[in-house]
Design a protein around this nucleic acid. Structure first.
Length: 488
RNA sequence: GCCGCCUUAGCUCAGUUGGUUAGAGCGCUAGAUUGUGGAUCUAGAGGUCUCUGGUUCGAUUCCAGAAGGCGGUACCA
């Protein structure tokens, strides 16, 4: 090393990127496992695609057309071709389906989970790297496939530990709004985009804010001005009335929409919702789980037909008692033009996607997902350093019996080791010192019980006298711990 | 991208009307207890006061710029 001051890099994460610790990872993995089990059961096949795709395969027209190169992490390969980290799992699926089109049995039903990356400003609950979990059917033209995906999404919610009333899937069809805009003579692409953006903000800005965005535009509290869609008063009212055509049963909403949409392109949307309703009913997905809501637009991108969003209704509270709102944790819809980009041949597709971290965080706050809790840990204390072989043998014995166990491999006296076991949240410490070794016994310290006792006492002497440690014959180690575990 | 606020110990934050030794709580390490966790007590380690430049005899403090953080907003496949 150089004699001059050694360079010390600062230990820090790039902004927008997170380290995920044990509890978070356990919750996320349990969620992914539960969802994967559902997908497998419904006949979907797992698929994994690489993190990088050629930039053109990710689709320049997919992101906002105004700034096509922003939003992704891109680099040039040796041959100077642009590659970019995938920003979702749908674009790679479209590429895969197109590349292997001849060999795939259609409809191709696949599920996939993995990291995706977005090069944009991070915010609360928004990161530049996160995990998505998707299921899609490629080559499935009719509303039946959409209905199936919605029912599947509902079952995933259930598998995650959510019950009736904990969530709702809001379903709409893009063609309904297109029909309304067409009847207003406002279906030009740019105006349509602005209308979609405005509608997407309904939950945050309310009717007044959205009306401003549909008209001239809106100035927010920070003084930023957003240009509006330029609709006149009558057009604005028509759009807003359409958005508020929700409420009531699915059949009622269909009847209302039929009247609003009339003979336009929107009629196809009404037809689709009618079929979706029938299939959901026969699959037992009732109105409390999947409702129709004309105000759902689901971003802008590539959706061409039915779209839906899954929303958490269950609430948890912060420590100060104020409610935590979870909102939308996933969604999906039909995208009939995505594969055609590659093949030139129309390939209808529909799917569902959820953000694993966001969903898992919500489930943790709600205290669902029991599978996320680790098994109780047993720490074998290294009381005599020359007996390590024996300690490892004890730990191995416990593991063979299905327990989670480790022998202590650090340094320090017994106090340190018990402190270690305590901080690890271990349920038991196993102690074999010279006394136990000579007597052919083991001491099992019930750390959980000790913690309970400690909560009621302040005096150290008194606490130490409580019964929380038990000496048993060596051969009953496993049965003793198992018995104590099954007691609570 | 735009607007606003912030940056002092690992964390949360005091403080210095510009002056030589910059503090607290929590956390960390060690001891009281050489074979016993929590609580308690004692001691200790830990700081280029974000960076760069300016004003000044002197700047952590005042000024300017940058970087980073937070919040809002826009965009969001």
């Amino acid at each position: 090393m150089a004699k001059t001051k050694a360079f010390k890099p600062k230990a820090r994460r790039p902004r927008g990127f997170e380290d995920r610790s044990a509890n978070v990872l356990r919750a996320e993995r349990a969620l992914v496992r539960a969802a994967s089990d559902v997908y497998e059961k419904w006949g979907f096949e797992p698929l994994e695609t690489p993190a990088f795709e050629y930039a053109d395969a990710l689709g320049k027209f997919l992101p906002d057309e105004e700034r096509p190169n922003e939003g992704v992490f891109a680099m040039q390969d040796e041959d100077e071709q642009w590659m970019a980290l995938r920003y979702d799992l749908t674009a790679p699926l479209a590429r895969f389906a197109a590349e292997n089109f001849q060999d795939l049995t259609k409809p191709f039903r696949r599920y996939q989970f993995g990291e995706v990356w977005r090069n944009e400003k991070p915010g609360p609950g928004r990161f530049r790297q996160f995990v998505q979990c998707d299921a899609d059917s490629v080559g499935a033209p009719g509303p039946a496939a959409d209905a199936e995906i919605i029912a599947l999404a509902s079952e995933v919610m259930g598998a995650a530990g959510l019950g009736q009333g904990d969530y709702v899937i809001r379903v709409n069809d893009r063609r309904l709004l297109d029909g309304v805009l067409e009847s207003l003579g406002a279906s030009a692409s740019e105006a349509r985009m602005r209308v979609l953006r405005a509608i997407d903000k309904m939950d945050r800005l309310g009717r007044e804010g959205v009306e401003l965005l549909l008209g001239e535009g809106r100035k927010d509290e920070s003084g930023d001005f957003t240009k509006g869609a330029g609709l006149d008063a009558g057009q604005r009212t028509r759009v807003l009335d359409f958005l508020e055509a929700g409420g009531g049963s699915r059949a009622e909403i269909i009847a209302r929409l039929e009247a609003v949409v009339g003979d336009t392109a929107g009629a196809q949307g009404v037809e689709a919702l009618t079929e979706i309703d029938a299939i959901l009913r026969s699959l037992g997905v009732d109105e409390t789980r999947a409702a129709f809501d004309p105000s759902i637009v689901r971003g802008l991108g590539y959706y061409t037909g039915p779209v839906f969003e899954t929303e958490l209704l269950a609430t948890a509270q912060y420590e100060d008692g104020s409610p935590i709102r979870f909102g939308s944790i996933g969604g999906g819809g039909r995208y009939d033009d995505l594969v055609a980009r590659f093949t030139g041949q129309a390939v209808p597709a529909t799917g569902f996607s959820f953000g694993v971290s966001r969903f898992a965080a919500a489930l943790s706050a709600l205290d669902r997902l029991d599978a996320a809790r680790p098994d109780p840990l047993v720490v074998v204390v290294a009381a005599e350093k020359d007996q390590m072989a024996e300690y490892f043998a004890l730990a191995a014995e416990l593991r063979a019996a299905g327990l989670r166990a480790e022998a202590f491999v650090g340094g320090g006296n017994m106090g340190k080791q018990l402190k270690y076991a305590d901080r690890r949240g271990a349920a038991f410490a196993v102690i074999v010192g010279s006394e136990e070794r000579e007597a052919g016994t083991v001491s099992v310290k019930d750390l959980a019980l000790g913690a309970e006792i400690a909560a009621q006492l302040t005096d150290r002497e008194e606490w130490a006298e409580q019964r929380q440690q038990f000496t048993v014959p060596r051969e009953s180690l496993v049965s003793e711990i198992k018995a104590r575990l099954s007691r609570d």
